[in-house]
Design a protein around this nucleic acid. Sequence first.
DNA 1: TTTTCAAGAATTTTT
DNA 2: TTCTTGAAAA
Length: 758
Amino acid sequence: MKDILTSNINSLNDSQKKAALKMHGPIIIVAGAGSGKTRVLTFRIAYLISQGIDPFSILSLTFTNKAAKEMKKRVGELVNESESRNIWMGTFHSIFAKILRIEANKLGYTSSFTIYDTQDSDRLISSIIKEMGLSKDSYKPKQIRNRISTLKNNLITVESYESDFELKEYDEIAKRPLFGKIYLEYTKRCFKSNSMDFDDLLVKTNELLNKFPETLAKYQDRFRYILVDEYQDTNHSQYLIVKMLADKYHNICVVGDDSQSIYSFRGANINNILNFQKDYEEVEVFKLEQNYRSTKNIVKAANSLINHNKFKLEKTIWTNNEEGEKVIIRKCFSDNDEGKYVAKSILENVDKNKSKYSSFAILYRTNAQSRIIEESFRKNNIPYKIYGGVSFYQRKEIKDILAYLRLTINSNDEESLKRIINFPPRGIGNTTIDKLIVASKTYDLSIYDVIIEKINFIKINSGTKDKIFDFVNMIESFKTMVKNYDAFELASQITKRIGIVKFYENEGTAEGINRIQNIEELLNGVKNFIDERNQLNEPVLLVNFLEEVAMATDFEVQDSSEIDSVSLMTVHLSKGLEFPCVCIIGMEENLFPSSMSLDSREGLEEERRLFYVALTRAEKKAILTFTNNRYRWGKVIESEESRFIDELDSSFVKYDKNNYNEGSLLLTNPTIKYKSIKNKFRKLENSEFTHNEINNNQISEIKKFKINTIVKHSIFGKGIIKSIDGQKQDSRAKIYFYEKGEKNLLLKYAKLQIIDTE
DNA sequence: TTTTCAAGAATTTTT
DNA sequence: TTCTTGAAAA
């Protein structure tokens, strides 16, 4: 055994050790937050290998890319790289996508099938709804997609849907009786496009393993040791796959914590973990209850919270760590103040206690909340990194280029084709595209094949036909390059040929320049990808690259310098991570818990688990903030303290009521009448704010702008103020921008920088 | 067919 | 607020 292993084994506690060393048979590890479950899992893998188990026969499944990456890194530290590379380790979706590529033809796909992301699915559903002549009001694409997703996660095919009275009735009540037709058409179109959506990756894997016993046997024999992390978040479809694969050898180890089940919206079924013991008679159960991560105050506060949930496995999380600070709660006047408070808390710690920025994480319920924090951080020069959110790969310009690449690999990919057949514009309009869609249905061919085989039977102007031929010829020429060029050469050639950079250059906007930078970034990413792969002697073709990015949400920026920065992410994304100090913002009713979850006990309990997850990310310090006024949907909404704050045992928390001089606090809404503002201030009397100062500050800021002041705007550039109307905080200025012409801006929004006062 | 502009919707959470 | 969509104009 490697030294590093031996020293590691000694650092495990009793139950951790037992769980890690039991190589054979089914086991379940019920692991509380911070109980070192990743250590156990990684150690277990390393131990298996040290005992001579072939890394190729180990399958390790996680839920998020982030978790997979972390796991790979940590296993890599314990095992030789040459060995760890051979372990099949990744998310359910990515692992089974790999297998499906190998087995694709059994199911009628080719191995170059495309993976549709949510956006692709939405677009396809939208166009189906349109083609069927249905109204978008009763048939909302996103709702339809969710519904389809739920059905697929439970392996309910179109046929079984159609024969299920209850399911159909549900849709009739929801006023979408034709849902089944849409589901059918969607399924057909995906298949015709040689494409699978995220759910298909699991559905088709089930189909594969069910229909082809010899294939099932092959993978059963291959994956003799299976580990599943976050088992509480498996859905029915995933559950069945794991069960089938483990059926022969029963060497299955699942790890989970029912208190951290937070993915029921995508079909996670908590019963999978609660019933695991019924599935395998000889199962051994290990409980990890000692928390190594957090202080006593945090652990106890979290326990007091989760005790409000009815449905849970019995376990008691405890810790030997120091008492630590109490959980800090801060009430803020507005979301702006919340941003300031968070920034202030971070700066204070960085200055006084020499903390690193990377010790801090800001967690929020919804992605939209990140914006105000970002603003505040930029103002205060705090470096930060956002995880998730609008992913790099979701950006229009990136999706467009990927669509060209996808179409080159799989020309049946309908969504990619529709996306780019007229982008950059080449004179093929919607009318033409609609005709092609109709023809593709009549001839039961993909749009691309219709163009190639049946274009002469379709009524289209000859001029337009030529343009279509040009387009197809271009794609055909890309196809001939696929075999001879690596992904980077191909991607750069294609980018050049389609003239997308020129297109954005001609636009000449700041946005256009940004898009060009993103395109360059993408090409760098491809380059990086092949460099890495070349080192490992792995294939570097375009297909391989597309496979890699299909489910990637995070774009790896290759900054070697690893800048010390604060992490911003949703609570969901934070699962499995830990930070010395965690700020959970927006602890308000209707936000956290989300308003969508309030009508059912299950929904509310899931929100509570979500908060539990958030709170238990903290090692030393947890800060919770909530506001009285939050800017949402372009309006200021009054908000109230989350019920979850009340549920924390008060002996572990402390309200921060200090009066920090808040400086210029801008009120963000013109629609609030002065009187109502006054009322709000009255409510806050004797608390932390000194209101008059706020108003005066704000107004004095605005008063600085005068006619003929020269200002700079982040988008419009430099300009001169022509006139100012309106009162105080509602002041508007007519500004002549030297490059962009005259604009009328609200002073308090515009964030103008004064360059010169004449 | 393409571009522009105004009105209306939007915010759970991820693969 | 920002993003998307649809209609009208070019």
